[in-house]
Simulated assay, not measured.
Amino acid sequence: MKGTLIASLLFLTAFSAAFSQAKQPRQSAESNPVVVEKGLIKVSIMYPYAEGKTFNMEYYETKHMPMVAGFLGSNLVKYTIEKGLASGIPNQPLPFMAIGTFYVKNISDYQAAIGPNRDAIRADFPNYTNTTPVILVSEVVK
C-alpha cells in the first residue's frame, strides 16, 4: 500500500511538471527577444496571391524591408517578414504570398518618415513583386 501511494505521488509530480512545461511558450534559438507590447502600432503590408503574380522573397528580405526600416529610425521597434504557405481553408488558394510587418511606437512619426520616401518605396516594388500590396495599420491590444 505504501509503495502504491509513493508511486502515485511520483506520477502526479511528474505529470504536474510535464503539464506545467507544456503550457509554457517555446523559445527557439532564433526567436526575437523583443516583446510586442500593447499600444504599439502595427503596419502590415500584405501581398495578395493571384495567378501570374510573383514575389522575390530574397530581395524583399535583404533589400526592400531593410531600406524601409532605415527610413523609420528610432520609431521602429521591430519588423517581421512572413512567407505565405497555405490558406486556412483546405483546397483554397493562398490568400497572401508574403506579409511584411513594422511595429512602431508612434503613427505620426511613421507617417512623417514614410511620406517623403513614398516614391522611393513604390519605385522599388518592381524589383521584388508585380502585385499591389494591401496595407493595414492597427494598434496592438494584447
Rank of each mutant, 00 (worst) to 15 (best):
S31G: 11
A22V: 09
Q27A: 12
G100L: 08
S44V: 06
L72Q: 03
M46Q: 13
P25N: 07
S28Q: 03
E51G: 11
G100M: 03
K78G: 12
K78E: 10
P90Y: 04
G70L: 04
K105F: 10
M46I: 10
A17C: 01
G39V: 11
M65G: 06
Q27C: 12
A50D: 10
S16G: 14
S44G: 01
F19N: 01
A17E: 01
L72M: 11
S28C: 12
Q24E: 13
A18R: 08
A22M: 05
N32Y: 09
A7C: 06
Y49G: 00
F15A: 14
A22N: 13
Q92A: 15
E37S: 15
A7S: 12
P66G: 02
K78W: 02
Q21A: 14
L10V: 14
K53E: 02
A18P: 09
P95T: 02
E37V: 10
F96Q: 01
A69S: 12
Q24T: 14
R26W: 14
F102M: 08
S8C: 14
Q27N: 06
A98H: 03
A29F: 15
A86W: 05
H64K: 05
N56V: 11
P93N: 15
T80I: 12
F96G: 00
F102T: 00
N75Q: 07
L5T: 15
A50V: 12
A86H: 07
P48S: 05
Q21D: 03
L76N: 00
Y60G: 00
N56H: 06
I99A: 11
Q92I: 05
V68I: 12
P25H: 04
G84D: 03
E30K: 13
G70S: 05
G73D: 01
L85D: 05
S44E: 05
A14M: 14
I81S: 04
N91M: 12
I99G: 04
L9A: 14
P90T: 09
P95R: 02
G52L: 08
L76A: 07
